[in-house]
Design a protein around this nucleic acid. Structure first.
Lengths: 187, 187
DNA sequence: AGTTAGGCTTAATCTATCTTAAGTTTATTT
DNA sequence: AAATAAACTTAAGATAGATTAAGCCTAACT
């Protein structure tokens, strides 16, 4: 069974014909390391599922400062949800951290799939509910913890990721400079 | 029509019998200013809809430092979603900023309602999708903007709220001390 | 294999923000 | 209306974090 079906069937079950319908909406795409699948400033009408590999979403501000918004490991759904939903230019770029494989579905097919396969409403309801909780906990982290606490949280929460990403990227996820993170680690 | 139905029908439409079923799951509760409807550390198995008035959700850390996680104005859905969904102790307290009226639904009835009224899956899918986007944009704000920029964003984004809340509460929403916010404003 | 770019470290200096504490104003309670 | 508590302001001194710049190390490119 494909990884994407296994992911969906964690929360809802689909019949055979629904399965086929669903898969017909997705394209399977290989992505090589450092390739961007979302470009900041452009429109983004694709939702992605990471079959293998991993990604990093970041934002560049006017001064060229880079902020990492999220990491997307294997078995993860990812896009610039704001751009995807509202049709506004993307605030993020999404870059492959390694050679990866993704499934992609366009906005129109996404809406179609939700109409044709009612269980998907529940699936994505649960997915977004959890995503919301995760982001809200991160906001709480950001405003209530010290940088040191947040760094320790990060490495204990995402030990696999720590192998794949640079310290500069972790710093930009925490919202501090790489120099400062480096000096924190010395302690 | 009740405010709660008007809110739901922004995104999905319900039949007469579904409407009745749905409303039977909710209790309408008056809440007086400063009353807590969620207590940090206790379980939270209720989801609320703010019919009138407004609320503030905050977290107290071990040192007694208070962090404001969110404000919930009229026509807003609110709870400690993490506690509600996972059955863990609440990380937040939810306090009425003024005399208010809410609709409340328990976790069991929430699940029942989703089973009996399939349109609700879509409704909450959209609700959580937007909530996720909102929180993600706030994370981006937190890690990429200066405090001054975030303060200006806040007052331009929530001008009505600025009337109802203290500066101390805005400071704790931004993650800075009230003294620092005060000195920022002088400029 | 040699070269180059980028990542990591360290340290000095500068700026943002916190802490403490006092004084003042505004809101709440009696 | 008086009394009390809480919010807001101001300022001095302390700490967290940014900036700049140099040197070193590792990974990517030819």
């Amino acid at each position: 069974m494909t990884t994407i079906l296994r992911n969906i069937e964690k929360h809802v079950s689909l019949g055979r014909s629904e399965t086929e319908t669903l898969l017909s909406f997705f394209q399977n795409i290989p992505v090589s390391k450092k390739e961007l699948i979302i470009h900041q400033g452009r429109l983004c009408d694709m939702l992605f599922f990471v079959e293998s590999g991993s990604f990093r979403a970041y934002h560049l501000n006017k001064d060229g400062k880079e902020s990492t918004i999220m990491f997307a490991p294997e078995d993860w759904w990812v896009t610039d949800m704001n751009a995807f939903l509202n049709g506004t230019p993307s605030l993020l770029s999404l870059e492959a951290l390694e050679d990866s494989k993704i499934y992609a579905i366009g906005r129109k097919n996404f809406d179609l799939a939700l109409d044709k396969i009612p269980q998907l409403e529940r699936f994505f309801r649960i997915l977004f509910q959890r995503a919301y909780i995760r982001e809200q906990l991160r906001v709480l982290d950001n405003i209530s913890l010290t940088t040191e606490e947040r760094y320790l949280n990060f490495i204990s929460k995402y030990p696999q990721l720590v192998q794949k990403v640079t310290q500069k990227q972790i710093a930009s996820y925490l919202g501090v400079t790489p120099e400062f993170l480096s000096s924190l680690k010395k302690k």
